[in-house]
């Protein structure tokens, strides 16, 4: 329960940081927004969905999907 509350707090903070960063028109904005999205994705999948307790195959599958997705998106920007 405590871990769920901490995860919720972190996810809300990351969402607020995303909103603040998006208003800055800097070169790092795209990378920063995507990294924050990946962190939120990991927070939800590993803690809310309890993937942290799952077999390494499922953990690796989630991380490989995220790596592939963000790499392809970043290569196009």
């Amino acid at each position: 329960m405590k871990k769920l509350l901490i995860t919720l707090g972190v996810l809300i903070i990351l969402t607020i940081v995303t909103a603040i960063i998006s208003s800055a028109n800097e070169s790092f904005t795209v990378v920063a927004i995507l990294i924050l999205a990946v962190l939120k994705f990991i927070g939800v999948s590993f803690y809310f969905m309890e993937m942290k307790k799952a077999h390494v195959f499922w953990k690796a599958s989630v991380l490989i999907f995220l790596l592939l997705f963000t790499t392809i998106i970043l290569l196009q920007f």
């Binding site: 769920l4 995860t7 809300i12 939120k40 939800v44 809310f48 969905m49």
Partner: peptide
């Protein structure tokens, strides 16, 4: 959605 997901986990 994040808060809703938290409630689901709880």
């Amino acid at each position: 959605l994040i808060v809703s997901g938290f409630f689901m986990a709880v």
